[in-house]
């Protein structure tokens, strides 16, 4: 009998511990000078992705500036819709921050998923990571340049298979490229992947002829791919190949890739202006901390400081371009 008791006791202690840890934030609601208790960072993606890595790498530096420990909460799922909704459901008291790919996921949630929020519900303090679409092929491929791709697709749109993610900036960029060259996008063999990782693997392994995926993620695979075209007005990450203005002219239309970084509740500006100011300054100070810049650079993570004004403008601009291509993003 004593043995069953032991097991029950263990279970009780285990479940009690779990319950206590869940109840903790509610108990600690006492008010004092901000911040007087640990702060949560919501990452609307699962562990291991760029945002998760960014949040975990940046947290120690931000924590130092705020004087309270930061806890990272991963709320992945449904293209960040679940995490974004969860974040907005938390009180705007400065004890919940957001680290997300604001673009393209906030506009996508709003445009294609009937999200119950608007872009203005979020306030982006800083979006240090500015990803871009890279068109690439496998290192052993007979495709040498982006002109090869265009001429082959022009001759026969079904001659190449193209790997990308549905409802992505990459798809929009590919459609713009096709439209400019009078290629029928619907006749191209577009192969859709569930994430950037699988799409990049397919490019590196030559499973698809070319792929259009976020360029930063290609860095670890650099030896296995041949970059063909960067969808930005300048060279990025030292990739060879063309940039978008070489191919589509100086006033080229294109969508930037993921814009990732730090966000707050938009409503905080009026409801808790002091806390809001404290957080903005702390994120700025941590982003400019040389130790943080050094530490994040080593992990291929971005810390550049653009500031709230520019960050929110960049996001709004992306959202506007995405709205123009809403039919493509809604897909099928």
């Amino acid at each position: 009998m004593s043995k069953t008791l032991t097991r029950r006791t263990i279970l009780k202690v285990a479940s009690g511990g779990l319950a206590a840890s869940f109840a903790m934030p509610a108990i600690l609601r006492a008010q004092g000078a901000y911040p007087d208790r640990p702060i949560n960072i919501v990452v609307p993606f699962d562990t291991g992705g760029y945002n998760d890595r960014l949040a975990r790498a940046f947290a120690p530096f931000l924590q130092e500036k705020l004087g309270q420990p930061l806890t990272i909460i991963n709320r992945g799922g449904a293209g960040a819709l679940l995490g974004h909704t969860f974040f907005l459901q938390q009180p705007d008291d400065g004890y919940t921050l957001l680290c997300t790919s604001a673009a393209p996921y906030l506009p996508l949630n709003i445009l294609t998923q009937d999200a119950a929020f608007k872009l203005e519900d979020f306030y982006m303090v800083n979006l240090p990571s500015q990803d871009y679409t890279l068109m690439a092929t496998s290192a052993g491929s007979d495709i040498q340049t982006v002109d090869d791709v265009i001429s082959r697709l022009k001759a026969d749109p079904g001659s190449l298979s193209v790997g990308l993610q549905p409802a992505s900036a990459d798809l929009v960029n590919f459609s713009i490229l096709c439209a400019a060259n009078e290629i029928d996008t619907n006749a191209v063999r577009v192969v859709t992947y569930d994430g950037g990782g699988p799409a990049r693997n397919a490019v590196a392994g030559g499973v698809v002829d070319v792929g259009l995926v976020g360029g930063e993620g290609f860095l670890p695979l650099a030896e296995q791919i041949r970059p063909l075209m960067t969808f930005d007005t300048r060279k990025r990450d030292n990739w060879d190949g063309a940039i978008v203005t070489d191919v589509l002219g100086a006033d080229a239309d294109f969508v930037v890739g993921s814009q990732r970084g730090w966000g707050l509740h938009g409503s905080m500006q009026t409801s808790n202006p002091e806390v809001f100011q404290t957080l903005v300054s702390a994120i700025e100070a941590a982003s400019k901390d040389p130790a943080a810049i050094e530490g994040l650079k080593n992990q291929q993570l971005a810390t550049d400081w653009y500031g709230p004004e520019e960050s929110n403008q960049m996001l709004a601009r992306t959202a506007k371009v995405m709205e123009q291509y809403i039919d493509l993003l809604k897909g099928n």
């Binding site: 562990t47 890595r53 670890p220 695979l221 296995q224 080593n298 992990q299």
Partner: peptide, 27 residues
């Protein structure tokens, strides 16, 4: 060999590599 996580567990290992400034992959 490739620096590619086959699943969640190896993704965590790669993150640990990154924390120590080591990038997985062919090199």
């Amino acid at each position: 060999a490739l620096g590619i996580p086959g699943g969640g567990a190896t993704a965590i290992l790669l993150a640990a590599f990154a924390m120590h400034n080591i990038v997985g992959g062919p090199s």
